[in-house]
Amino acid sequence: MTQANPATLHIISKSPTHQQLYRDIANALLDDDAILFIEGGVYACCGTEATALLAATNNIYALSIDAQSRGLANTTPAAITLISDQQFVELCCQYHKTLSWF
């Protein structure tokens, strides 16, 4: 298990209507960080409000079960990778730390 990656996995569980939260997250991101949308955060998969985040990093994921349960599985843009709980755990291992935003 490599621990060389110093980057952060940002776990976002609020929808993009929390604009100040999303501004803070955009400022907290470095380009090798990753974003994982969970719970209500997966609404960032539709609409344009998360555009600033999408521009800041290429590593964007959404928890599949949360997207599916909200009717978003088929509308998730290609730039966002849907992942399982198992892959969520793997991401946590790949990144040096996680930072939860809620």
């Binding site: 776990i11 569980s13 609020k14 719970e39 946590c92 291992c93 730390k97 996680t98 939860s100 809620f102």
Partner: peptide, 9 residues
């Protein structure tokens, strides 16, 4: 722990 993960709302 190697990782401490926060779940909150």
């Amino acid at each position: 722990s190697d990782r401490t993960i926060t779940f909150g709302n």
